[in-house]
Design a protein around this nucleic acid. Structure first.
Lengths: 221, 221
DNA sequence: ATCTCTATTTTTGAATGCAAAAACGATCTC
DNA sequence: GAGATCGTTTTTGCATTCAAAAATAGAGAT
C-alpha cells in the first residue's frame, strides 16, 4: 500500500525535474517530506534504480540518473522500436472506438498547436502515442514503453521547440492518424520510426545534457 | 554490495524454477538460507516484482509470478520486436570479430544438436541471440531484452522439443547467421520475427501455463 | 600558507523491534 | 457432525537501532 505510493511519488518528483539529473537524492529530506521512514524510501529507490531513473553508488548514496547523449540515443532507438511494434500490433487489433478516441486526441492536439499552447500540445501528443501503444493490447509492451518514455521525458523538459519543427511534427501526426485509420501496419510502423528519429534529433541537437555541476574532483587511484 | 548480490541470487532461484510459478516465497527460509535479514531480502523482492518475476500481494506476502497464456504471448510479441530491432541495429554495427564469435557459437550449437544435448543446445541458442542483441550496441535494449527473456525462460523449462521442431529451429538459425554475415538488416529482422513466432507456438502449444486459480488481469490506465 | 593525518560527525547499509493484519485452531452452537 | 466465533500464533509492513563507511573538519608538520 505504502510502497507503490512511495515509488510513484518519487518517480513523479524525478520526472518533474524537481531533483535534477545527477543531483544527490537527500534521503533524510525525502523521508520527512513523504512522512515515511527510511525503509520504504530505500525500497523505492532500489526499484527506481532498476527502472533506470536512479543511480545507486555503493556507500555513497543515490543520485537522480544522469543521461549521456549515448544513453538518450539508445533510449530513442528502443522507443522507436517499441512504437513501431505497437503500431503494427495496434493496426491488427484496434477498435473503431479506439481509433475515434485517438482521432479526437489528435484534433485536440492540433487545436493546442494552433493556440500555441506547448504544454497542452505535449500532453495531447503523449496521449496519442500512449493510445497507440495501449491499442496494441500488450501490457508487457505498455510497461516497457512507460519505462523508456519516463527516462526520456526526464530529459525533455529542457528541450526547445522551433516553429518549423513543431509544424513538421504536426504534419507527421496527420500521417500517423491516417495510417492508423487505414489500419496500415507497415506504413504506420515506418512513419512512427521516422517521427521518433526526428524527435531524437531535436533532443540531441538541443544539447539537453549540458555537463552541469558535477561532483567535486575524485581522486583517481 | 549485498543488495545486488541478493537480487541476483533470488532471480537465479526463480529462473531455475526452484520456486515454481505461483508458489509462495518463504521469506523466513530465504533469509536463513542467504544468511541475511529481512530488510535486504524484501528490497530484492520489490525489485524483482518491478521486473515482473515476483508478484506482491498486500499483507499476503510475495509469490513467484505466474504467467498466463496471454502473458506469454505478450512477452513473445515484445521479444520478437526487440530481437528484430536488435537484428537491424546489429547489421549496421556488428564487427567482423563479433560475427565470427556468433558463427562459432552457431557451430557449437549445431554440434550439440547433433549430439542431442538439449541443455547445451539451449545454452548455445541463448548465446547466439544474446550475441546479436549485444552487437546492437544498445545497453537499454540489452536490459529490456534480458528482462523479457528472463520472464520467458522462467516458463520454458517445461517445454518439450520434438525432433522436427528442433531440426527446423536449427535451419532457421542457419538463415539467421547468413543474414547477419551479409549484414542484411531487413532480412535478419524478418527471419528473427518468424523464428520467435515459431518458438512462441511451441511454448503455447505445450500448454505450459495451466490455467489455475489466477486473479483477473489488472487494467493499466 | 598548504598539505596531511587524525578525530568527529554524518550518512549509509543492514539487523532488529513493534504494531497491525492475516492465517490458524480450538471451542461453542445448532 | 458442520459451521461459526473467538483467541492464539504467525506473518507482514514499517520504524527504529546499530555498526561500518564516507564526508568533514581541525590540528600539526612542513
Amino acid at each position: 500500500m505504502l510502497h507503490e505510493e512511495v515509488v510513484g511519488r518519487i518517480r513523479d518528483i524525478l520526472l518533474d525535474g524537481e531533483i535534477p539529473p545527477g543531483a544527490r537524492i537527500p534521503e533524510r529530506e525525502l523521508c520527512e517530506r513523504l512522512e515515511i521512514s527510511r525503509t520504504p524510501l530505500r525500497e523505492a529507490l532500489k526499484v527506481l534504480a532498476a527502472e533506470g531513473l536512479v543511480q545507486l553508488l555503493p556507500h555513497r548514496g543515490s543520485r537522480a540518473a544522469k543521461l549521456t547523449d549515448k544513453d538518450m540515443r539508445d533510449l530513442f532507438e528502443v522507443c522507436q522500436g517499441l512504437e513501431a511494434l505497437a503500431g503494427e500490433l495496434a493496426c491488427e487489433r484496434i477498435s473503431d472506438h479506439e481509433i475515434a478516441e485517438i482521432a479526437a486526441a489528435h484534433v485536440a492536439m492540433v487545436q493546442h498547436y494552433r493556440e500555441g499552447d506547448l504544454i497542452q500540445y505535449y500532453r495531447g501528443n503523449r496521449a496519442i502515442h500512449e493510445g497507440i501503444v495501449n491499442a496494441a493490447g500488450n501490457p508487457v509492451l505498455t510497461g516497457l514503453y512507460a519505462s523508456v518514455t519516463a527516462r526520456i521525458r526526464r530529459a525533455r523538459y529542457v528541450t526547445p521547440m522551433t516553429p518549423q519543427r513543431w509544424a513538421f511534427a504536426v504534419s507527421e501526426h496527420e500521417a500517423i492518424l491516417n495510417a492508423l485509420q487505414r489500419r496500415d501496419g507497415a506504413g504506420l510502423s515506418h512513419i512512427l520510426r521516422a517521427h521518433l528519429r526526428h524527435k531524437r534529433e531535436e533532443v540531441l541537437q538541443a544539447g539537453f545534457a549540458e555537463t552541469e555541476a558535477n561532483e567535486p574532483t575524485l581522486k583517481i587511484a
